Computed example of a mutant assay.
Amino acid sequence: RPGLRIGYMPQKLHIDPSLPLTVKRFLTLGGTPRLPLDEVLALTGIEALTGATMSNLSGGETQRVLLARALLRDPNLLVLDEPVQGVDVTGQEALYRLINDIRRQRQCGVLLVSHDLHLVMATTDTVICLNQHVCCHGHPEHVTNDPAYIALFGESAKPLVAPYTHHHDHTHDDHGNIVEKDQHRHA
């Protein structure tokens, strides 16, 4: 749509180690941001990294900096290409949680490209399965039962990536605590 702002996070970024580029300088290279830098630093949890050299960051730190750079545009849509590339398992979980929190807080759409089927199926609203064309798409549970998906990944992959669906008569607050329906209406 006209005026759509897209924030893009590449899969990885190679910066020559001899380039003394700090995180703060890297984040301010893209022109005038639409969001204050301090807000984006806090949102992504990288306030302490602003003086660090980009080439000295860990995989998880680099990915958070790339995410921060994408957020500076105050995007309506975040396009994330393999956002957990080069991040350890614990960091992957934290980064996916952060992306979900940002989506909820900023009310932006997220288009996430990933090969991590179990994570995609467990935390996504809609899946588009691509193999040189759109094989199938829809809710994760629908996709895992689609013949095109089964033909691509095999019947044995289905139970490994099937999503957990949680149906109940209550909601959860931001901390994961149960809020009964009557309490939620009055909160």
Rank of each mutant, 00 (worst) to 15 (best):
Y149N: 08
A187Q: 07
R5K: 11
L119S: 15
L98P: 03
L152W: 04
I15G: 06
D173L: 06
T171Q: 13
N76Y: 00
C136M: 12
V143S: 00
K158E: 15
V23D: 05
P163K: 14
L49P: 00
T32K: 15
G7T: 09
K24W: 05
H139P: 02
A187R: 10
I15V: 10
R34E: 12
E47N: 12
D74K: 12
G60F: 14
T123E: 01
H142F: 09
E82V: 01
K181I: 08
T50I: 11
V40W: 06
D38T: 08
T53A: 11
C129Y: 00
L77H: 14
V87P: 15
G91Y: 09
T124G: 02
L78W: 04
S18I: 10
A187T: 07
P140S: 11
D174E: 15
P159F: 05
K24S: 10
L117I: 09
L67S: 14
L117G: 09
D146T: 05
T44S: 13
H142K: 09
H137Y: 12
I102S: 00
D169K: 14
A157D: 05
T44V: 14
A151P: 12
D169M: 03
R97M: 06
S156L: 08
A48G: 06
L49A: 03
L111M: 09
R103M: 01
A162S: 15
H14D: 08
G91E: 04
I102W: 00
Y164I: 13
D174P: 11
P147H: 08
L112K: 01
V87R: 00
A70Y: 14
H14W: 12
N145L: 08
H186C: 03
V127H: 01
I15H: 05
L78C: 08
C136W: 11
A48W: 09
E47D: 13
F26D: 06
L71F: 11
G109L: 01
G31P: 07
R25S: 10
S18F: 06
K24A: 09
H137T: 03
H139L: 01
I99F: 05
A151L: 02
G45D: 02
V79W: 11
E141D: 03
P147S: 10
Y8S: 03
S55W: 14
D146V: 01
M9F: 06
L35F: 15
R34H: 09
L77F: 11
L21G: 07
V134K: 12
T165H: 02
V143D: 00
A157P: 06
T53N: 12
M9D: 07
D16F: 06
L117W: 03
N145K: 13
L80G: 01
C135Y: 05
H115R: 10
Q85G: 02
N100L: 10
L19I: 10
I46T: 09
L98S: 04
T124L: 08
E82G: 12
I128E: 09
K24F: 05
H175Q: 12
F153D: 07
G3Y: 04
P163H: 15
P20Q: 07
D38Y: 00
